[in-house]
Design a protein around this nucleic acid. Structure first.
Lengths: 218, 218
DNA sequence: AAGCTTAATTAACAACTGTTAATTAGATTA
DNA sequence: TAATCTAATTAACAGTTGTTAATTAAGCTT
C-alpha cells in the first residue's frame, strides 16, 4: 500500500514444518481462549504468545473465527476417537463401559485438556452457523455413545427400566463438564477418584441401600 | 472541553424514579451479558437497549465492572433469600429439604432467571478482586446451605453415611447450573419435572433398587 | 550463486472500546 | 415565573480490535 524506506526489518526465524507450527498456534490459542475467553483474547495476544506479530496469523488461518473452529474441532475429534472403542464395545457390560467412559472423560477434562472446556458451550456462539453445526454434531455424537450404553443397560437389567436415558446423559455430561471449574491438581481428590465418585453417585445415588440381597448376586 | 454551537440537542424523556431506572438498566444488562458475554457486550449496546446514549450510564454506575457486579450481587442475594428459610428449617426432613432446594434452584434457573447464569462462573473473572470475593462468598453460602442438609441427612440415616458431602454439593450444583444450557421451554420437560428427575437420580441413582423391604418403612 | 517459495515483517485501515468533560433540557421546587 | 436539580445529551479522548497490503528475509532448489 505505502512505500517504505526499506531500512530495518526485524530478525526472524522460520519454522520448518508448517503443519507443526499451525498445531502449535492452536495449542497456544486454546490456552488463551480458556483463560480469557474468545472475546477477551486478541489476535495480538495469541501472536505475542507465539513469538511473532499478529498479521502473521493470517498465513495460517483465514480469520479469528476459523482459528477458534479448528481449535475446537481438532480437540473434540481427538476426544471422540478415544471414546469410541470403549463406548461401542458391545461385549462389555454396560456398567463397566459406563465406568470407563466417565473415567476417560474426566481424565481428559482434568489432566490432558483442562483447557478445552468452555469451548463446547458458551464459546460456541462465536462460530459461524456452518461451523457451529459441525461442532454441535460432534458433541451430539458423544451423547449418542453415552445414550446407547444406558439403553443397553436397561435391556440387560443393569439400569432401572424406567429411567430416562436422554436425561441421564445430560446429567452425566453436566457433572463432568463442570469438574474443570472446581478441580484443583493440589486438591484432595485425584481425577481417578473423582471419576469413581461420579460413577458411584450416578449408579446408586446418595441414599443408603437397603440391605443387599446377596444371594441374588450373579 | 470544547465549546459547541448549541443548536439541536435531542429530545429526551426523563424517568421519574432513579432507583427504578437503575434496576431496569440492570435487567437489560443481565440479558445482554447472558446472550453475548461481558466482553461481547458494549456499553453502547446496553444504552441502546435502554433507549439512551452510552455516556448516560455513568450517571448510574461508576464503571462497566460496577454494573456487572451489581447485576450479579442483586440477583444472587434475591436467590439466597428465597433459599434460606427452606434450607435451614431444621425441623423438616433432610430428604424433603433437599427436594425443595432443588426445586427452587431449578425453577429460579429456568423460569425466572434463565439469564443470570454464567454470571456465577466464567464471567466472574471480570470482577475486581474485591467484588469477586464478595460474589464468591455468596456462592459459598449456597454451598453451605446444601452441605448442611446433606450432613443432617447422614445423621438421620436418610443419606448413606459414607458419602462425601462436599462432593455431593458440587454434583448437585453442577447439574442444576447446566440445565440452563439445554433447557427449552417448548421441550417435553417442565422445570418441575426436571427438578424431580434430578432429585430422584441424586437420591437413588440409575441402578434398579433391589426389592424394597417394605416392612422397614417407617 | 541465482531464483523461488513462503513465513515472517511493518504499516496502516476503519471500526469500536470504556470513559470523561461540558452542555442542555425536563421536571420539581421556591 | 424564576431558580434549582438532575437525567439526559453531544463530542471527544486514547487505546484496542480484526484485517489487509506491501515488503522483506530465510531456507530450499536448481
Amino acid at each position: 500500500m505505502v512505500k517504505r524506506a526499506g531500512s530495518g526489518y526485524k530478525m526472524r526465524k522460520r519454522s520448518a514444518n508448517k503443519a507443526a507450527s499451525k498445531a502449535a498456534i492452536i495449542e497456544v490459542a486454546i490456552d488463551l481462549f480458556w483463560e480469557n475467553g474468545y472475546n477477551g483474547t486478541s489476535l495480538r495476544d495469541i501472536a505475542e504468545a507465539c513469538g511473532f506479530e499478529a498479521a502473521n496469523l493470517y498465513n495460517y488461518f483465514r480469520s479469528k473465527e476459523q482459528l477458534l473452529y479448528e481449535a475446537m474441532q481438532e480437540e473434540l475429534e481427538r476426544f471422540l476417537e478415544l471414546l469410541e472403542p470403549v463406548a461401542s464395545d458391545s461385549r462389555g457390560a454396560p456398567v463397566e463401559r459406563l465406568k470407563r467412559i466417565i473415567e476417560i472423560h474426566v481424565e481428559r477434562m482434568l489432566v490432558i485438556g483442562r483447557r478445552y472446556k468452555m469451548m463446547y458451550d458458551s464459546e460456541i456462539r462465536h462460530l459461524s452457523p456452518v461451523h457451529r453445526k459441525r461442532i454441535v454434531a460432534l458433541r451430539d455424537y458423544y451423547s449418542e455413545l453415552l445414550f446407547n450404553i444406558i439403553e443397553d443397560g436397561k435391556k440387560t437389567g443393569d439400569f432401572a427400566a424406567d429411567i430416562d436415558a436422554r436425561f441421564v446423559v445430560l446429567i452425566i455430561a453436566s457433572i463432568i463438564m463442570r469438574t474443570v471449574f472446581w478441580f484443583s491438581p493440589k486438591g484432595r481428590l485425584s481425577p481417578a477418584e473423582i471419576a469413581d465418585m461420579i460413577y458411584k453417585i450416578v449408579l446408586d445415588g446418595i441414599r443408603p441401600r437397603k440391605q443387599e440381597v446377596k444371594a441374588r448376586k450373579k
